[in-house]
Design a binder for these strands. Structure first.
Lengths: 208, 208
DNA sequence: TTTACCCGACCGAGCGGTCGGACGGTCTCA
DNA sequence: TGAGACCGTCCGACCGCTCGGTCGGGTAAA
């Protein structure tokens, strides 16, 4: 591929035109970036097409409507993070499984930062059907943590004086809000933060 | 107050007209409810005025612009929660102070549920100046927790192998996300949840 | 007469989405 | 091998609609 006679400008991203069509990945990434920083409703299709370097009308050869973008962002980011957590879950022994899942979750969420934050903050703007579909995937993801926690309770690895439901919700709180303040340029590494949060969740804030 | 000659219909909320002007509290509450469920941008001033039982034009005798509502919601909810946490902080000895602050925070956030959730989710849609002002108040609130955690570290009550910054962020994650799933009709009481989360944060998820 | 509150009608701007057509590789078939 | 149909992609102009906000009053208690 790419045996064009003169491949001209490509470095200056949004200058498209002759060659260089928009890929689905570019589309979702650009949309997620705008949706995260400005919100879904506050982002116009004109802005998005400008960011991509195409006309607004051209956008509609890739999507049926603006909502398609938000829906795809949600399903793609959830598929990524589910796969990552499932892999960690399968690879780690029960004793260290939760910590491995925390690592995997934070890592996946922060790699797809724009998409994942958009999913969390904006999925409520989807139509009722699609909202339900996304909610179901989120529940599936939460269920992975809950299963592990329940299993840990059975084996005496996790306290059972607190219902598994609230142990799970507490962990998800801990994980989900992180994406809204994490800044890769100002914070410690994802791995370090995952270790801190895993330590706090598993062992508490009191001295060891 | 309320010595009107004929106070007529009041139970059927949005039937206003003769007597019964809109109070500032009603305004903010109605706006917060819509903003939380639909989002700030997705809520029109027409919808809001309908919910209040007045004409859209009448709305502008109470506010200068739609953004005023969002800004007031942010400042009011932050003032409430700060006051609640500061009182708890002043009343409790250091050993039980964090737990008392957690109780106070969750209680205040869930009493002002619509306003607080709107503040967290939508303050980014404010103008830059006002956004900075709100951010400053949020930082002041976070600083209350951070101070207590740092003091606890000094007295050997809180582990110091994790930086106070991340101990604080972890606690705020735990608290802030709760408002997005809490449903007073389906969950346990706020007090119980605050105890669960305080236990997990302070002592961890492993068996006692 | 003032004041606080409310109203119906209206405005310009920006929105999501559509239209008919231009462009340029690629495949088909004589 | 070359003419021509095809198709994915992109485009400028346009549409109907809803948005936040404004205007010049009306009404009734103080």
């Amino acid at each position: 591929m790419n045996n064009l006679p003169a491949s001209d400008s490509e470095a200056t991203a949004p200058t498209r035109g002759r060659a260089g069509q928009v890929t689905r990945e570019e589309l979702l990434e650009a949309a997620a970036k705008l949706f995260r920083t400005q919100g879904y409703n506050a982002t116009s299709t004109r802005e998005l097409s400008e960011a991509l370097g195409i006309q607004k009308a051209s956008l509609y050869h890739h999507i049926r409507g603006k909502e398609d973008l938000l829906f795809s962002i949600c399903t793609v980011s959830l598929a990524h993070i589910q796969e990552a957590v499932e892999q960690a879950m399968a690879a780690a022994p029960l004793e260290s499984r939760l910590q491995a899942m925390i690592d995997a979750h934070l890592d996946a969420a922060l790699v797809d930062r724009d998409m994942h934050a958009t999913m969390l903050a904006e999925f409520g703007k989807l139509s009722a059907d699609r909202q339900a579909e996304v909610r179901q995937e989120r529940d599936r993801h939460a269920a992975l943590f809950r299963m592990t926690i329940t299993e840990g309770q059975g084996k005496g690895l996790i306290r059972d004086d607190i219902p598994a439901r609230y142990l799970t919700l507490a962990l998800l709180n801990l994980l989900n809000w992180t994406i809204f303040w994490f800044d890769p340029n100002r914070e410690r590494s994802v791995r370090e933060i995952a270790n801190f949060f895993g330590d706090i969740y598993l062992d508490g804030a009191r001295p060891r």
